[in-house]
Design a binder for these strands. Structure first.
Length: 422
RNA sequence: GGAGAGAUGGCAGAGUGGUCGAUUGCACCUGACUUGAAAUCAGGCGGUGCCGCAAGGCAUCCGGGGGUUCGAAUCCCUCUCUCUCCGCCA
């Protein structure tokens, strides 16, 4: 949610930002609803104030007196009017709330113009593909033993499409990746949290999954819980409706969770193998920071994610997402894409974003400065990293002529061997 | 799942229809005393919204929602959560 003051006092700026994002929002309707709301509030408060004063007088009168009885009769009409005005206020606030939630966050000045993903800017590329990618590279699903290591068919039997089993050393490799990501984040100052995998509607609303992206989440209807599409949801909600100490900022947390996404309608080309799943593992980095620091914190967050790919020796590039392709709640966003040498495609493995105060406002996460009023924190998050596509890149890029896969040095401590083969 | 108790400010804990945003204690901040500190004393100390350049004023908030009443922290209904006991269980 945008700051209502910004909305009404710097309307032109907001309008320009929304235009850059290519969103269609009737800002005039938002402003009008705000005005109706404020007018209703003012009217109600005057009536209420009068009623309060009269009630104070009545308290001083003897209960049974004729004077008292007369006042009661008189106040009945005033009371009815207060109730009526109060109803008007809550209606006006409801209308305004609904409409203001449709206004997206505005993009930061450093975000490039653009309409689609084709307009995203490549800001850097790491790793020499000719050196780091195997000469016998092939798509991971074409590796001879692939279906033994990652069993999609039995996953279909047990659950449905997109819920594979990882078997034997492949399961071990998954666990090694999780360990590696968590340990690296720990060294970078993130406190590990092990979070709930189901959340209530209030949490899903605070981080922005509800009401718009409802169809993307699995819903446990008996208890009205949602399966998390990312650890961002429970981890960010940890501090929902709380006021943090300024001295504790920045707060940095890391969480590993499975993620569940219905991915309704997005199946089609390029989603074979590990490229898109209904259940996948991800390690997520979340930061709550001082508003003045959030854009530098975004750079360091991106650095924390990049370092993982470097240590795994996987070529990647960094995209600065253009205004038209950036998310609804985001102010600025970088994507990290790993090079999958077999598919010869870039695969997104991380998205690092600054939400500024947009998400904090929705979630009610604030801090108390040493002086002055309570303020909203800025929230950021980034994957560090999503597992399946990293796994795909490792399998494809490190495939050996003998059909085995060399495991990156950084993972051997937890994987325990040098190669993977079935 | 069954029975009972409860939810009040950062924490503890009063308050059962009017002068209660709420006694008090702790914590915290400021000042006095002190070489400094402790102790003591005095004062201050919540969020949100609206109006205002500001000082400030008004409104609102006692778990959430609804109701009764001229008036609700206080009475009624409902939901959620917590605790205790019993049952079941990884």
């Amino acid at each position: 949610m945008l700051d209502p003051k910004l909305l009404r006092e710097q309307t032109a700026l907001v309008r320009a930002g929304i235009a850059r994002k290519k969103f269609q929002v009737d800002l005039d309707a938002v402003i009008a609803a705000d005005e109706v709301r404020r007018h209703a509030v003012a009217e109600f408060e005057v009536a209420r104030s009068t009623q309060n004063a009269a009630n104070k007088e009545m308290a001083a009168l003897p209960k049974g007196s004729a004077e008292f009885q007369a006042k009661v009769a008189e106040m009945k009409t005033a009371s009815a009017r207060v109730k009526e005005l109060e109803k008007k206020v809550s209606e006006a606030e409801e209308v305004w709330k609904q409409i203001v939630l449709s206004v997206p966050n505005i993009p930061h000045d450093s975000v490039p113009e653009g309409r689609t993903e084709a307009d995203n800017k490549v800001v850097s590329t790491w790793g020499d593909q000719t050196k780091l990618v195997s000469t016998v590279a092939k798509p991971h699903w074409d590796i001879s033993w692939f279906s033994k290591a990652i069993d999609f068919e039995r996953g279909v039997k047990v659950t449905g499409a997109g819920f594979p089993f990882y078997v034997g050393d492949m399961a071990r490799l998954v666990r090694a990746l999780i360990q590696f990501f968590l340990e690296e984040a720990g060294s970078a100052g993130y406190t590990e949290v092990h979070a709930p995998l189901l959340v209530n509607a209030a949490s899903a609303t605070a981080t922005g999954q509800l009401p718009d992206k409802e169809g993307q989440m699995y819903h446990a209807q008996t208890d009205d819980f949602y399966l998390i599409p990312t650890a961002e949801v429970p981890v960010t909600n940890f501090f929902r409706d709380e006021i943090l100490d300024e001295g504790s900022l920045p707060v940095k947390r890391v969480g590993y969770t499975p993620c569940f996404r219905r991915e309704a309608g997005s199946w089609g080309a390029h989603v074979r193998g590990l490229n898109r799943l209904h259940q996948f593992d991800k390690v997520e980095l979340v930061k709550w920071v001082h508003p003045e620091k959030s854009f530098e914190e975004l750079e360091s967050l991106r650095g924390d994610a990049e370092r993982l790919l470097q240590k795994l020796n996987l070529p990647y590039r960094v995209l600065l997402i253009c205004a038209g392709d950036i998310g609804f709640s985001h102010s600025k966003q970088y994507d990290l894409e790993v090079w999958a040498g077999g598919q010869k495609r870039w695969l997104e493995v991380s998205s690092c974003s600054n939400f500024t105060d947009f998400q904090a406002r929705r979630a009610g996460i604030r801090f108390r400065p040493k002086e002055g009023k309570v303020e909203y924190v800025h929230t950021l998050n980034g994957s560090g990293l999503g597992l399946p596509r990293v796994l795909a890149a490792i399998l494809e890029n490190n495939l050996q002529p003998d059909g085995s896969v060399r495991i990156p040095e950084a993972l051997r401590r937890w994987y325990g061997k040098e190669t993977l083969q079935f």
